[in-house]
Every structure is written in C-alpha cells, then in structure tokens.
C-alpha cells in the first residue's frame, strides 16, 4: 500500500483589528489561497469553510481584489464543551497587476472552496504572429 501524504493542521490566522484592516465587526481570518496564472487568466482558489453564496462578497476596484465571507458563529448550537478552533469570517485583499476583463469574471463556491477566474483583458494575451515567407 502506498503511503499518502498526511494533511497537517494549519492554524487559522486571525486578522488583527488594531492594525486597521477594514473589516466588519467580529472575528475574521485570512483564508489560505492558491493563485495561478495561464495565458488567458488568473485563477484564485481560497479555503473559506462555512461561507455560503449569500454570505460571500467579491469586489474588484482600482486593481484591488477583495474577497470577504462571513460565517454564522453558531448561536443555534448547543453549549460548546470543547474547542480547538475559532469560528469567524474570512477576508483578504490582493493587488491585481494585470488588466482584467471585468465582465468575464467567474466565481464558484463549492464545499467551502471559492474558485475565482479572472480573464485577462484581450489586449494583454500573448498573440501569435504569423511569419510570412517572402
């Protein structure tokens, strides 16, 4: 049997409200992300467990991409008897260097993972130049 890589605990990073992060009231964490780029687009994948479509806000303005998701803290839950992690929302900002085709942005939220595809503006995509033979 092949040994699989074991998934380790990554402590959630709470956002320090005192540093003036513009967030809503309550506890917020920095979501872990993957960002990759192809010729056509930038893709951002973010772990945001507990966030639903209705609680998710994505904003791209003046080259700053902001993703914010709130999570219900569990008022409907019974008495907390044992706690290993804290519950709160997720928020993070990114500077987007590329020109993005705003109308083509697509977002998908599945099993607590946000997948955001930002297509590059057409003028920035690499263009193949046909070489004419004289």
């Amino acid at each position: 049997m092949s040994k699989k890589k074991a998934l380790a605990v990554t402590e959630k990073r709470a956002i320090d409200m005192a540093s003036g992060e513009p967030t809503q009231n309550g506890l917020f964490f920095t979501p872990l992300v993957d960002i990759y780029e192809t010729d056509e687009s930038l893709t951002l994948v973010a772990d945001m467990p507990g966030v639903t479509k209705g609680n998710l806000d994505i904003d791209l303005a003046e080259g700053i991409l902001t993703i914010t998701g709130t999570v219900p803290v569990g008022e409907d839950m019974p008495q907390l008897a044992y706690q290993e992690y804290q519950i709160g929302g997720f928020t993070r900002k990114f500077r987007v260097g590329e020109a993005i085709d705003q109308s083509g942005i697509r977002a998908k939220l599945e099993d607590g993972v946000l997948r955001l595809v930002l297509p590059k503006a057409k003028s920035l995509r690499p263009k193949k130049i046909e070489v004419e033979v004289a």
Binding site: A6, L7, A8, V9, G74, M77, P78, Q79, L80, A81, Y82, Q83, E84, Y85, I87
Partner: peptide, 8 residues
C-alpha cells in the same frame, strides 16, 4: 487535522 469543536 482536522481540528474539532464539540458541542453538547
């Protein structure tokens, strides 16, 4: 992994 909370 994963960290867990227990309510009772």
């Amino acid at each position: 992994f994963p960290l867990a909370n227990i309510y009772d």
